[in-house]
Amino acid sequence: METESKTKSQRSKLWTLFINMLYISTFTFGGGFVIVNFMRKAFVERLGWIDEDEMLDLIALAQSSPGAIAVNASILVGQRVAGFAGMAVSVLGTILPPMIILTIISFFYEAFATNKYVNLMLKGMQAGVAALILDVVFDLTINLSKRQRPVHVFMLAAAFVATFLFNVNVVFIILTAALIGVFLNLWDRKLVLLI
């Protein structure tokens, strides 16, 4: 009886995961970071399956691995929520919508790409996308400044300047941040030793 309800709850979890990924992937225009924001809203805020720090870690992993950020994040979230089956279901939910949409579009792509109504609609949607991302950034920054050390707030600013103003390669920025983490750790230990 008990195992039966267990498989049942596992199945409903997989289903929820699949539907959420399908929904997110269908309605997320504008690249990896947009989709990652939607995932955070769904799995951290709404479902509470993953906590905020862990989600940020998963995003960092997704960003620094090869491949699409959305697919990588979907692998990580799926695995975290329901193991191997979760990963399979989650990735399937993520790649199905673009595959179906692109298959349809590849049949009449010129008409689509040059249609001015479609273009205006998509242009306007950018306003919503930008607002969503900056809304999430506000939340994350407020949470971060509450509980992290000042050096981390400084790193946020520095990383922003590096990537936004100077177009520094993202992989380089991430590696630098990781190195700073190692040094901070050594520094903390040395202080402990000295005291």
Binding site: G30, G32, L56, A60, Q126, V170, I173, A178
Partner: peptide
């Protein structure tokens, strides 16, 4: 390391948003 990566990830997200 992870605590140092988190603010950087926020910066990357912010940069993507402002780019759009």
């Amino acid at each position: 390391i992870l605590s140092s990566l988190r603010p950087v990830v926020i910066a990357l997200i912010a940069s993507a948003g402002l780019g759009i």
